[in-house]
Design a protein around this nucleic acid. Structure first.
Length: 663
RNA sequence: GCCCCGGUAGCUCAGUUGGAUAGAGCAAUUGACUUCUAAUCAAUAGGUCGCAAGUUCGAAUCUUGCCCGGGGUGCCA
């Protein structure tokens, strides 16, 4: 049961009668949406705020309207008599009997009373999408974890979901690997551990390419930096205008010049660092000198691959499965799966057709030797074919959408991708509309950057991106320490053997990493901190898992047969405020899931679970379960415990997080 | 220059799409462990929601202008 949707239904009837309009009219729907959860318990459990705008509209005092609305409302089976407060708020308090009935239904329901969507939709969800040429890094966590959670939640709600890992297996990076393999391979290292060697080769070639690019750019960058410095200096020494307004503008211009000069100085410093990184290493320096055209040659390898070169294709077929297997190992550890892994290469043959089709419809035109889609409202075109005839990710993305529409006819396609690509998606979606797909919801589910504690993008001390696997290892290692210390400190002595501790640490560590990410509003950048994610208090996975383990321990301690309890005719009685508050929260699960799906925000679910755990803790303090005063109360409280544990476990599962029975 | 996102407690962040007295966690102060797992709970303190106007019964939320930060901005993804 979803309380709020039932209440809204009842309100829509009353409002339709009052307004003399159909219950599904826009006016009624808008007012019905103003039925919501009260944010303060003293205003009841739910509240309807529609009397104020309605009063205005009808030219009547809102309180009168509220009174009339309440009279027309048929909610006596669910709610205590409605109260009208303040300017015209309608405050609703659910009858305990209604709560008790709903709880009884949830006890015997696999789905905890969450009804499947009335109108199931088909979703294609595009997430994770690592580049097979380089190891997964910190930036892939968010896409992977958020996408996985959204998939699980939508599925649970009864939607059809196709998850598709659009891996990068065909681009520039692959050319670097091919070039590296052909020129710099250490055969014995490759035999021993192919993926490690390929990763080394990628890094090496990337470094050499970066070096030559930096050397080429440096003089101009330096000149620009000097020019800006000089302008800033000149502006600083210029006489200050007597006119106040002009003086202010002068100051502003100076500030701007300074910040530009600073930015440019940083660009120069970055280039110098790139160069120093190579020149500081005799071996690298030698290679750099030996291969001055490494960038062009790597690109040529990519081009040859695309053109069907036999040798490059053979190597591609050799490398890709190895790389995918390596990535798969991390997915297994994360508990993430995909229905499809259709990488960029899958669409290769379709790309010329895409461009031809865009031309045919007059959407694409030639410009500066490239083929571009110019769109109203955008300063820059979307390029679908480069001067050299190569295709870009825009082209692949278009082909991918066409394919997905053809194969699954989805109602929605979600892209869980870094928000820095928002412009690309705006252009892509706009093009797709013009191209002829207009019935599908296209959504860029963007997310912010992972930062370190000083507010910069998360990197190692030497400036490299942090590998995802080392991140997992570190989290698990820290979790093991915490688990062990806690176990040692238990009043009755340690209860976990070494193997169990290691297992618990793996679950707890990975959960911490995922939850830290999911509990954040996805739009904002997020600060990565092991200490914070593994904290025992606050909105963390550790706290949630602990809450679960604590509930379960009651059943173990009391030797309660949960199945028998659920099957028995025992019911929940809500005598204590803490019991009622907990019950209400348990029954709100369905609303929380709706909130997740409405904006594709898993943090709505973590927030709910945290609230639930908080209510449970209060209940746990105030209401003895095993030592309850009588058998009925004991059974009632055990049922509340059971529902809490199941809701937490189910909620965490939808986040892709597992629970442990003991910790 | 233009476009997008953000600015909420000392710190890290929520804020149910315009509702009543803006909430958590950390840090600070106080109290509660021969326990149903204290990895906890209860309580206190902490705010001109960047600034200024506007819209209305009502604004952290919508509009406009400005300030500050981040990102993007024609051939990487």
């Amino acid at each position: 049961m979803n309380t709020i949707s039932i209440l809204r239904q009842r309100f829509s009837h009353a409002l339709a009668a009052l307004l003399d309009e159909p219950a599904d009219s826009a006016a009624v729907c808008e007012l019905v949406d103003m039925v919501r959860r009260s944010q303060d318990a003293k205003f009841g459990d739910y509240q309807a705020n529609c009397a104020m705008p309605l009063g205005k509209r009808l030219g009547r005092p809102p309180r009168d309207v509220a009174t009339e609305l309440v009279e027309r409302l048929d909610i006596d089976d669910l709610c205590e008599p409605a109260e009208i407060a303040g300017p015209g708020f309608i405050n609703l308090r659910l009858r305990d009997a209604a709560l008790v009935d709903a709880l009884a239904a949830a006890v015997v329901d696999e789905r905890l009373g969450v009804a499947p969507a009335e109108r199931p939709r088909t979703f294609v969800i595009d997430y994770s999408a690592p580049n097979v040429a380089k190891p997964m890094h910190v930036g892939h966590i968010r896409s992977t974890v958020i996408g996985d959670s959204l998939s699980r939640t939508l599925r649970f709600l009864g939607h059809r979901v196709v998850t598709d890992n659009h891996v990068g297996d065909w681009g520039t990076q692959f050319g670097m690997i091919l070039f590296g393999y052909k020129n710099f391979r250490d055969e014995s290292a490759y035999q021993a551990s192919p993926v490690t060697e390929l990763a080394r080769l990628y890094r090496l070639v990337n470094q050499l390419v970066g070096y030559h690019a930096a050397v080429a750019r440096l003089p101009e960058a330096r000149a620009e930096a000097e020019r800006l410095q000089a302008s800033a200096a000149a502006a600083q020494h210029a006489p200050v205008s007597a006119d106040k307004k002009e003086a202010k503008q002068q100051k502003k211009a100076l500030q701007k010049l300074r910040s530009q000069a600073d930015d440019q100085a940083k660009v120069v410093a970055a280039l110098e660092a790139t160069i120093a990184g190579v020149e500081g290493d005799p071996q690298l320096e030698r290679l750099a000198a030996e291969y001055p055209d490494v960038g062009a040659r790597a690109l040529a390898e990519t081009a040859k691959l695309h053109a069907g070169d036999a040798e490059n294709l053979r190597l591609w077929h050799e490398f890709v499965p190895l790389c995918l297997e390596d990535i798969e190992r991390i997915y297994r550890r994360l508990g993430v799966t995909f229905d499809e892994t259709l990488g960029e290469s899958f669409y290769h043959e379709r790309l010329p057709g895409v461009v031809a089709s865009l031309r045919e419809r007059g959407l694409a035109t030639d410009s500066d030797g490239a083929v571009c889609v110019f769109l109203d409202g955008f300063d820059t075109p979307m390029i679908v074919e480069k001067q050299d005839g190569a295709f870009l990710y825009a082209t692949t993305d278009l082909a991918t959408i066409a394919y997905r529409m053809e194969r699954w006819s989805p109602d929605a396609i979600l892209y869980v991708v870094d928000h820095r690509q928002s412009l690309h998606f705006e252009q892509l979606f706009a093009t797709v509309r013009l191209w002829g797909f207009d019935g599908v919801e296209l959504e860029h589910v963007g997310f912010g950057t992972v930062m370190d504690t000083s507010g910069k993008p998360y990197k190692t001390r030497s400036g490299d991106t942090v590998g995802l696997e080392s991140l997992l290892d570190e989290a698990v290692q820290r979790a093991l320490k915490i688990v062990s210390e806690n176990d040692d400190a238990k009043p009755g002595g340690a209860t976990l053997d070494a193997a169990t501790r290691a297992q618990v640490a793996e679950t707890v560590g990975i959960a911490a990493l995922k939850y830290a990410d999911l509990s954040q509003n996805r739009e904002s950048d997020y600060v990565f901190s092991y200490d914070k994610m593994l904290a025992m208090n606050g909105n963390t996975a550790t706290y949630m898992q602990y809450a679960y383990a604590r509930v379960r321990s009651i059943f173990a301690r009391g030797e309660v047969d949960v199945e028998a309890l659920r099957a028995s005719d025992a019911g929940v009685a809500l005598a204590e405020p803490a019991e009622r508050a907990l019950a209400l929260e348990i029954l709100r699960f369905s609303e929380a899931l709706d909130a997740v799906v409405a904006d594709y925000r898993p943090n709505q679910l973590t927030a709910y679970l945290f609230d639930l755990a908080g209510r449970y803790s209060t209940f746990f303090e105030q209401c003895p379960v095993l030592k309850a005063p009588d058998a009925e109360t004991r059974a009632s409280r055990l049922l509340l415990c059971d529902l809490t544990a199941r809701t937490i476990a189910q909620g965490l599962e939808l986040l892709g997080i597992r629970v442990v029975e003991k910790m």
